[in-house]
Structure formats: structure tokens, C-alpha cells
Amino acid sequence: MPVIEVSGVSHEYGDPGNRRVVLADVSARLTEPRVGVIGANGSGKSTFVRLLNGLVLPTQGSVRVDGLDTRRDGREVRRRVGFCFTDPDAQIVMPTVREDIGFGLRRRGLGQEEVAVRVATALDRYGLADHADHPAHLLSGGQKQLLALASVLVMEPAILVLDEPTTLLDLRNTALVTDTVSGLEQQVVLVTHDLSALDGFDRALVFDEARLVYDGAPEDAVEHYEKLMR
């Protein structure tokens, strides 16, 4: 498994004299296949996962993925860490399903034949083959999220970060996405408000008011989080 090392990380923004701290002195070494991240809205969990592929750079401290620093080696880190957002509409770039899955591969400079083969494999694997040439905006919410996932996974990242991927989905589509994610061989870091999604996870982090307040077994983490919310 890849190794994610977050060392003494703080992140803040705003003008001098009016700084807002969104993460304060967070350290964690993530090596487990399945890591959950939970916490209240505004607790810092989304900022934490955005640090993992360099979307957000720490104000203090460092984040390393397999020894690569997100500040210095951002491009290489992003190749290793795929990122899936809450709203699939905001991450689908191309008008049709096939084109969106192939988007990243083409930008990476792969030949047309290789792109076609890898896209066809992804379409089959994620159940999108029947929609290959459909406009992406006509897909259901679950299919859109699967498309977003497929477009990230076709790039073969070693780590997949998901920031509340099922928040906008109904129960059926949530199950569709959750089942797909559970079958992945990649290391997964999942931010979620759905505590049942942590079943079978190896570790969970709890954030509260910009701090990592609990780090351990998912069952204990959920209990800790529920106590915080009372």
C-alpha cells in the first residue's frame, strides 16, 4: 500500500489580523487500504483530504505521498492520488461519457488506440458501456458519480480520495457507488457523513474544529464522533 505522511500540518487563510484556521497541527501516517474521515460540517475534513493530492497546500508542515512532497512534486502526487468530489457535475469535463473517460488519458499523451482500449475497459467495468456516447448531463445522479469515478480510475492512481461522493445520491445510487468503491484495489480515503459507509474500513479519523481529535478503529471513531455531536 502507498504511504501518506501528514506531518504537523496547519492551514489557514484570510488577511493578516483576520486569519481563519481550518486545520491546526494535524499529523497522521496513512498506510491502511481503507481510511475513513468523519466530522461535522466545517471541521476541516475536506481541507484535510484536499491536502493529500496538493489541491490545498499546507501553511505549515508537509504532506508526502510515497515520499513525494505535495508542494514540490505536485504533478507526480496528482498522478498517484485520484480525487472524486461530491458533485459529479462539477468534475465532468467533456460532453459525452466516452469522451470524459478518455479526457485525462488524451491529455497524458497516450495514443488513440490505447486510449480507446482503456476507455472501453473502464466503460465495461463501471457499467457505463450502454451509455458510452450519451450526453453526460442526461445520466442519473448515480451514473454521473460512476462516470466521475471511472474518469479518475482510468488514470490508474494508487490512491483514491473521495469527498462525500454519495451526499447528493438516493439510496440505490449510494449503494451503486459504495459497492463500486468497496471492490477497488486502490487505497481509499473516504470523507463521509454516512457512518455506515465505514463498515469494513481499517481506520477512521475524526475532525472537530480544525483538529484531528480521534484516530483509530472505525467503531471507536464513530462512537467518539457521536459523543461530540451530543
Binding site: N53, L55, R75, R79, F83, V93, R107, V152
Partner: peptide, 13 residues
């Protein structure tokens, strides 16, 4: 949000 997703997908690299 789209800009952030484009960066995550390596467009800015």
C-alpha cells in the same frame, strides 16, 4: 468547483 476538478485531473500540470 470545475477549476478545482481540472487541477485534480492534472490539467494544470
Amino acid at each position: 468547483a470545475l477549476g478545482e476538478a481540472l487541477v485534480a485531473r492534472g490539467v494544470d500540470d
